[in-house]
């Protein structure tokens, strides 16, 4: 297709995506994380581990965070696009 697949296997991209999410304190258990032909898909509830500044909870800060996250994920070698389908709906795994 339009990228050097052998050089950037989807699995490796997927692992690097998880690494970025871990470094940004994103709770990965509430997300489906996948890569298909260099297109990264994040689907689910994007929550972050607690401990950030209180202001980070506001919608504007969340938008900024998402924009930066997208940009950082796009910076991973082999990533063609990042598709985020995120919601803040009720979790399905809540005890």
């Amino acid at each position: 297709m339009n990228r050097k697949e052998a050089e950037f296997p989807d699995f490796e991209i997927n692992a690097r995506v998880r690494q970025v999410l871990a470094r940004r304190w994103v709770v990965q258990q509430e997300l489906e994380i996948g890569t298909t032909d260099g297109v990264v898909v994040l689907k689910g509830r994007l929550a972050r581990e607690p401990g950030g500044p209180a202001a980070a909870d506001c919608p504007e800060a969340r938008e900024t965070f998402l924009r930066r996250l997208r940009s950082e994920l796009k910076g991973i070698s082999g990533v063609v696009d990042v598709v985020m389908e995120l919601h803040d709906a009720e979790r399905t795994d809540a005890a």
Binding site: P9, F11, E12, N14, A15, R16, R18, Q19
Partner: peptide, 14 residues
Amino acid sequence: VGFEYASQGFLDEA
């Protein structure tokens, strides 16, 4: 550890 290996490029270990 599988993801950690993969992110460091060690795909066989992953």
